[in-house]
Design a protein around this nucleic acid. Structure first.
Lengths: 330, 330
DNA sequence: ATTATTTTTGAAAGCGCTTTCAAAATTAGA
DNA sequence: TCTAATTTTGAAAGCGCTTTCAAAAATAAT
């Protein structure tokens, strides 16, 4: 290659990596030779010599649903465009498995890492710090955290949704939450609901918060459970949309009128929320933007910029037909 | 590292890569030193020296839905377990973008490649062949194809589903299909429907096959269109489940009784099929098995085994409440 | 025109591991 | 026990590129 261009290998390398450091006559000769020979740099050789792999790791709780899959697609596209390769792993909400993936990716020499949420063992963060690579925790926004976060304020979003239901007149709430242990996003959503209800002087007993693994059938089960209570709740806040789907499906099967008898609210505004009948009131979360901002942040960090993560991304309360004022005269 | 173990670097390398070629006393010393030093091989150095990257590329049309996401998760887990890294890209059903991803991955020196379907430019296959790496086309099974396929017989599955509807008494069919151009799986499903109806002497005019990009709203639109026909069809076969979701949702909104007035059948048995009301009759396709078999096949090929892809995986007709005999006395 | 400064370039070293080949060690057979 | 065959091991080379440093070339200042 260098021979064909009539320059040294060092000049070829400079033309490809720092073109401004090469005079244009030589640069032209190199470009011609690249074209003529169809030259493609050998990734491993570059990684070895430069001590940078140009690979970025991304560990999601799951990739088989639209929530994380959407962010992953955007993330991958942005980084591919800048010559980076994204290596994906799924943890299944299992902290041990996630830790294993982190170790494995670090061993593979990734240049940067995307993680979901901040709740994890300090050992993991120490491992990452020892490698001195940039990382970012997404789906959460916590300006007090020592970890760079890109996401939205789960507390405020849940609070806002709850305020809306309170303003509709609801006073009897339950919340369907994902497992709280190790899932800071789920914890934040519960916290947001608590804050709103506290602010309004509305009690939320501990047994009004039900905790299950994410899933539609779990939503169905919780719905059956709470609707047997007397008095039954008039508003159900779901910390994740599969729960809301399950609740809506179960209500239909049991001829329980939504929202006439009970309002149901979701969280995330995935594609099915607007298709259900009644269409779900929910919080729209910025999935694409998360993928995009995470890519931009890591790219900047990899360039050596000392930037802070962006301000929290916006969520929007999306009001649809699944919520209405509570039944009168109970 | 080799110094710590008191052996040569070549012996360390052999202990890690071909342990049978090392006597146990030396092997023990190397294992001790690895443990003591926390030694981890440098991936790029291994790739450069061995001319194998231990990376495997996987290009899916999309990864933000359960269909491909499920297979991806299984695929990644199997390969990670054998020390391989999976690099994922999404093509958005765009042939040019897919070609770009293929080139990029080949340039990155992947050891093997997973693709979806076989319909693509011969240039792409030539590029892959030039690199002399194993590849596999999934989601299709075609024993006559020159390309190794792992999947199921889309034709037979669609035929079987159609037979079932014919046996119920249906004679007026429409099919909602994804874009046929460049999507061999979609073509096969149309072909299967045609074969069944031909075999039963039932006409399927060209305008009874509607072609749209995949999506729920597209399913809604097609449903509205065909249900204004007089006589309207009594059975709708959807080549992909989002169409079926859309049809069911639209039927509910228009007070069209499913399956009393029109039966709706899906394809793939994704998680929502069983949750809808009425629950969808559909074809269960082996998503997990595809990911698993693809991983096993590529691993064997990378080991140098000359194996054929597995026999076609099984599909199952899943009969639920969305289908019934056609309305009597029309 | 000469000198000082800056920019460009090539030679050399080396990133961390694998492979090859020949020597050393071990095992098997007579 | 000796010889032949096989296995194990280490030294050396090198995978393809990047980085460093010193020399060469170009530019700026006097």
């Amino acid at each position: 290659m260098a021979q064909e261009a009539g320059v040294s290998p060092a000049t070829v390398s400079r033309c490809l990596n720092t073109p401004a450091a090469v005079r244009s006559d030589k640069r032209q000769r190199v470009e011609d030779a690249v074209r003529k020979l169809g030259y493609v740099p050998h990734g491993a050789a570059r990684a070895l010599a430069s001590k940078r792999s140009r690979m970025i790791g991304a560990i999601f709780p799951a990739v088989d649903n639209a929530l994380f899959g959407c962010a992953l697609e955007v993330f991958q596209q942005e980084l591919a465009h800048e010559g980076y390769t994204v290596v994906v792993a799924a943890s299944g909400y299992d902290a041990d498995l996630e830790a294993r993936h982190v170790r494995n990716l670090l061993q593979n020499g990734i240049d940067a890492l995307l993680l979901v949420g901040t709740a994890r063992s300090p050992d993991i963060y120490r491992l990452i710090a020892a490698r001195q690579i940039p990382y970012v925790a997404v789906w959460r926004s916590d300006q007090t955290s020592e970890h760079p976060c890109i996401g939205f304020d789960n507390i405020a979003a849940a609070e806002h949704l709850t305020d809306y239901l309170v303003d509709l007149g609801h006073r009897r709430f339950v919340m369907f939450s994902g497992q709280l242990d190790g899932n800071d996003r789920a914890q934040d959503r519960v916290e947001g609901v608590r804050r709103s209800l506290d602010r309004h002087g509305i009690p939320l007993p501990a047994n009004a918060i039900l905790e299950r693994p994410f899933g539609v059938d779990e939503g169905r089960e919780m719905f059956r459970l709470v609707m047997t209570e007397n008095p039954a709740p008039t508003a159900i806040i779901c910390g994740s949309e599969p729960f809301a789907y399950g609740a809506v499906f179960e209500a239909a099967e049991r001829n329980i009128a939504v929202p006439d008898q009970v309002s149901i609210a979701g969280f995330d505004d995935l594609w099915l929320a607007s298709q259900l009948s009644p269409a779900l009131t929910t919080v729209r979360t910025p999935q694409r933007e998360i993928g995009q901002e995470a890519a931009k942040y890591l790219l900047a960090r990899l360039k050596g910029d000392r930037i802070a993560p962006p301000r929290p991304l916006e969520t929007h309360l999306i009001i649809r037909k699944s919520t209405a004022p509570p039944p009168a005269a109970l």
